[in-house]
Design a protein around this nucleic acid. Structure first.
Lengths: 236, 236
DNA sequence: TTTTAATGTTAGATGAATCTAACTTAATTA
DNA sequence: TAATTAAGTTAGATTCATCTAACATTAAAA
């Protein structure tokens, strides 16, 4: 049985490796991500190694073991199922659910999660557009295309976000975006690289930093293939 | 902000005083109830006193302060709302919900509980028949009549239980009882005080210990007042 | 009233998770 | 290659929640 803190460490490792597509991470990076000091991380890594959750050698990089990865994915699954519950059933705005799910993800009961999963109709995507790992831990990260990769005059559909913080998500709300929204890139300022976008007729200027966190799907336009909408929740 | 453990101590204090109708409790009793050693309780009581949650003097009995009681009631409210959610929405049998709610009751978010409360339709009674405290902490314990107080030939309706452990509740299930069930006391063995009861035509023998934990409402019978059923969930 | 039993406290230890400050190793740059 | 910087570790301290073992107080019984 893992402690809350141990669960948070392996979850962070999952995020910092798999989501970025990197093999292993350093102590400092982990510390920064978790908001603790590097020394604290070193201590914890020793404990995680003893429990065979990570592979780690002194002064080297860390990566999750097979069992560590599987436990981390389970925590992530809980997190995303709870987020889905909070939005869909309790009507929370998406910028509030992450913080509460950070607590709920540590509740220990497999049966609870299975029942919640069934209650929600076995959702595949959470309120931020992230894939919910299946019960048996199948979980792979799709390569992501971001708004910042688009050229002027291109349009795309919002399928996810790379930052779940309340501050970022409220900004997303403010420009009128939600999952499934169509985004048109009107032009990119040559001078400061600000991107002018249009959503439902409303025009906004956003930064590269912002655009890096906006994941999009580019619908086939030139090929004249007929309308393929994003079905956020219905694709079993 | 209280720690999980502090919340558990004040919850235990609420239970050991109010539910039993006693002013204050001793260190040993608290320790026994929480499954820790008396020395541990002494330490914790000092901390709780510093935080003004209890009134306590060395070698004396402990009781909750006004603010301690209010916080304890809030924990109890969360516990019972979660239990209601687990039974009603996720279909958990009542003997499983207590353990999971022991974890969920410590999640910190007032908005979460308010939304859950609304989602459940502002329930007043939890799956064990206990009153759910209202948001403003109004909560009084009704004096309880138990099955063990009934005489032979009397009948009554199950309105609650005094023990939420899985072992006890499964026993209750086994004799065919659920909230609202009508119980007929057929006779009481003079020799060993076993109580013979009938529920839906099914006869069982139960002990005094068991009967002490079965809370009942005795419908007016002799007075010929017409049928008054127990409406477990609908009485706003 | 004195002894005994029950109850409660103190002191010292442990493990988890954190910190700061000092030190070591690895990587980069001149 | 040597010096500097970045990254990582160790040592020692702190807080929380717990323990055991020894001691103190209160209540009950002889």
């Amino acid at each position: 049985m893992l402690t809350f803190t141990e669960e948070n460490y392996i979850k962070a490792l999952l995020k910092l490796t798999e989501e970025v597509g990197v093999e292993a991470v350093g102590t400092n990076e982990l510390a920064a991500h978790l908001g603790v000091k590097p020394a604290t991380v070193t201590d914890m890594l020793k404990r995680l190694k003893e429990k065979q959750l990570v592979s780690y050698e002194k002064y080297g990089k860390v990566s999750l073991s097979v069992s560590g990865r599987s436990l981390a994915i389970d925590v992530l699954r809980k997190h995303r199922l709870w987020e889905t519950f909070l939005c869909r059933c309790l009507g929370f705005p998406w910028h509030q659910v992450h913080e509460i799910a950070e607590q709920l993800e540590h509740i220990q009961s497999n049966e609870l999660m299975d029942r919640l999963d069934a209650f929600l109709g076995f959702p595949q995507i959470d309120p931020h557009g992230d894939l919910i790992p299946s019960k048996d831990g199948v979980f792979q990260v799709k390569p992501k295309r971001t708004l910042s990769m688009l050229a002027a005059t291109q349009s795309a559909v919002l399928i996810g976000v790379g930052d779940n913080s309340a501050a970022f998500l409220q900004y997303v709300d403010a420009v009128g975006l939600q999952l499934g929204s169509e985004i048109l890139v009107k032009r990119i300022q040559p001078y400061d690289a600000l991107i002018e976008i249009e959503i439902n007729g409303k025009t906004s200027q956003v930064s590269q930093k912002f655009a890096d966190q906006i994941f999009v799907d580019t619908p086939p336009q030139r090929d004249e293939i007929s309308d393929v909408g994003l079905d956020v929740e219905g694709d079993l």
